[in-house]
Design a protein around this nucleic acid. Structure first.
Lengths: 207, 207
DNA sequence: GTCTATATTGGGATAGAC
DNA sequence: GTCTATCCCAATATAGAC
């Protein structure tokens, strides 16, 4: 492009300039499908269709299906981490923040068991790819663990191993989501969130 | 076979007569592989090899790969349920029984996230097959839930929703297993079991 | 009941035009 | 950068001998 600067065309710019970049469109569609059907449950053709493109374009942006999968996972985990961080930074008691976090996550349509999808495909991923995913996953847990650790210092909770507790919390979110799916649309997200939160907070032992 | 009864051959009977029936051998191998690599991570060829047979034999006993998968899952869940029942029937306080259950399950090589494997393949399963798996799964949860319910009646615990708590417990087993895998062989199963059990029993809230 | 050999297809990946 | 057309292999499933 050796052309000099052009004068701005009057009127609304063509749609293309406001469109989501192709790569992001692919990642978004891929993430959604992978979350719902798992790696092997989705073909490149389906992802192409879902993003309104063709297979060849996908391979223009991503070397392989595995690559696309890894980048989609990392992206989702990063976004998830940011949202989580924002909620946990609020100036509230830990209990309220965790409850809000659980409600929010339960409300998200695509909850996802990446762990599940991963389990089946670990053998295909390179060490680097596994590492990338594990790092993104760990960052998410660390965000929660940090909040638990701070609260523990303040004597707000008795939690001894924040990282472990963080994993338990995230897993409770998964179970909660499974329960919401089971009972269907008549589900009361807030109520389910509350009851899982209570198990997390007080355990099942005698009062 | 119209031959009359033969006299028993002297000496040790041929190995074949004490062998596990072919169908069980297939199911065992299939269950192990499916648990480790997921449905799509394993081919019929691999299952055939693992059970010392050929693909054709597998198709002699099972109509399709999906069929084999479903029967393997149900079988594992049933066995798991029986073992669980046995442990929970012991005349001990609930806490001890649950701790023993968690230790035992953490010690099993193939822990498995059937849920994971399932998620990816739900779209392929017939309604009947999904039902069969869900029934077997529910039976397992019910076994744990029953123990929790009884204990609740006795005032041994404060648990309000036994079924929900049962799911949480089983899920803690999964996290525990994931943690053991992460930290590798230097893992202390009993210690990990204890600490997850404590989160389940007392929660993380202030003492 | 178990084998060898093969038909069939879904889907990952690429070539090359535009 | 995006398309059409195609290659190619892995893996399910079957045919038919023994």
């Amino acid at each position: 492009m050796v052309k000099g600067p052009e004068r701005r065309r009057p009127g609304r710019p063509p749609a293309s300039s406001t469109d989501i970049p192709t790569q992001s469109r692919i990642l978004q569609a891929a993430a959604r499908l992978f979350m719902e059907f798992g790696v092997d449950g989705v073909s490149m053709g389906q992802i192409a269709e879902a993003s309104g493109l063709t297979k060849a374009v996908l391979y223009y942006y991503f070397r392989s299906k595995t690559d696309l999968f890894v980048e989609a996972v990392v992206r989702v985990l990063e976004i998830s981490r940011e949202k989580t961080q924002a909620i946990l930074d609020a100036p509230e008691p830990l209990y309220s923040r965790l409850l809000r976090l659980m409600r929010t996550r339960l409300g998200i349509a695509a909850p996802l068991e990446w762990g599940a999808a991963l389990h089946g495909s670990r053998n295909v991923l390179t060490a680097d790819q596994i590492h990338a995913i594990e790092r993104a996953e760990q960052a998410l847990f660390d965000t929660v663990a940090a909040a638990l650790g701070t609260a523990a210092e303040r004597g707000e909770i008795r939690c001894i191993a924040p990282d472990r507790a963080a994993r338990v919390f995230m897993s409770l979110v998964s179970i909660g989501h499974a329960e919401l799916e089971r009972i269907g649309t008549r589900a009361d997200v807030a109520a389910v969130a509350k009851s899982f939160m209570d198990i997390f907070w007080s355990g099942i032992g005698p009062a």
